[in-house]
């Protein structure tokens, strides 16, 4: 590493002569070793998924959640240092609650990403702190209806000032990824952590920009991608954790919830089948091709 011995990597908030902040780059290294997290922005919802590498057989299966609810309609997942992820979520919850108390309306995913981006960026500026060792994916559904202000009485004007604009649509899915530098972009599909390269390649194949993928299929794709991304890291066992946020008509009614057990298991079954199919694929290349037909 070129930075070693130069001294420019020892303190946060110090640039190297060629304009790099090494502490931030080291934080990115911490992320690159973490379990893969992905998010998919579907036409009628958002899926979040994470590959939890099982660090001990003594850990209770299904406990120790990694995807958190930030507000009713927003979830967050991160790769990297887990405690940093917890602090990220804690602050995100504060931001979301604060937004409600000020604006009497839920925070949008975009605004939350902006607030959190600003927060992470501040941790690159001071020598007394270190950057976050995580890259976080924040996903949610901004209500397509005009939500009543918290504690609102009455239904407001029907027409005129404050009335509804005809034909205008509100809300929709939101997916953002925030990096240790504080940089954040909105994504159709986001991936971070150890298997991000594979996951990104898989996500790109989905043509998410077309906005045709349904949430139901998104869940299956997410499970598959986590399994595919894990394939490079086969020696370690892992657990798949998945949450989703649908539109108001969908299964979660705009709320961020865990993907129900039956749907999760079905998605995992398909993911495993897919992987087996791929393995067979490789084996059958030089063997007889009839087997594939089965």
């Amino acid at each position: 590493m070129t930075s070693i011995g130069t001294g420019y990597d020892l303190s946060n908030s110090v640039f190297s002569p060629d304009g790099r902040n090494f502490q931030v780059e080291y934080a990115v290294k911490a992320v690159e070793n973490g379990g893969t997290s992905i998010g998919i922005r579907c036409k009628d919802g958002v899926v979040l998924a994470v590959e939890k590498v099982i660090s001990s057989k003594l850990l209770k299966a299904g406990a120790n959640k990694r995807i958190a609810t930030v507000d009713r309609h927003i979830g967050a997942v991160s790769s990297g240092l887990v405690p940093d992820g917890r602090h990220f979520v804690s602050h995100a919850r504060d931001e979301a609650a604060n937004w409600r108390s000020v604006y009497k309306t839920p925070i949008t995913v975009k605004d939350l990403a902006s607030r959190m981006g600003g927060y992470l960026q501040a941790y690159t500026l001071y020598s007394s702190v270190r950057p976050f060792g995580i890259t976080a994916i924040v996903g949610g559904w901004d209500s397509e209806l005009e939500l009543p202000v918290d504690g609102q009485v009455g239904s407001g004007p029907i027409s005129g000032a404050g009335g509804k604009v005809e034909g205008k649509t509100y809300g929709g899915p939101g997916l953002y990824m925030i990096e240790p530098s504080g940089m954040y972009w909105g994504y159709y599909g986001a991936a971070t952590g150890k298997g991000r390269q594979t996951a990104k390649a898989e996500l790109e194949k989905l043509d998410l920009a077309a906005g045709k993928l349904s949430l139901e299929d998104g869940v299956k794709e997410a499970a598959r991608i986590i399994y595919v991304a894990h394939a490079d890291n086969k020696d370690k066992e892992f657990e798949l954790e998945m949450t989703w946020i649908s539109n108001l008509d969908g299964p979660t009614k705009g709320r961020h919830e865990e993907v129900p057990k039956d749907i999760l298991e079905e998605a995992e079954r398909l993911a495993k089948k897919h992987l087996e199919g791929e393995e067979d694929d490789e084996e059958t290349k030089d063997d007889d091709k009839d087997k594939m037909e089965e």
Binding site: A68, T69, D71, R72, R93, A96, A97, R100, S101, K104, D150, G151, R255, H256
Partner: peptide, 14 residues
């Protein structure tokens, strides 16, 4: 009180 209950509900969902 309604806002208070709303925030309580959100915290429950955590």
């Amino acid at each position: 009180l309604d806002r208070l209950l709303n925030s309580l509900d959100i915290q429950e969902a955590y």
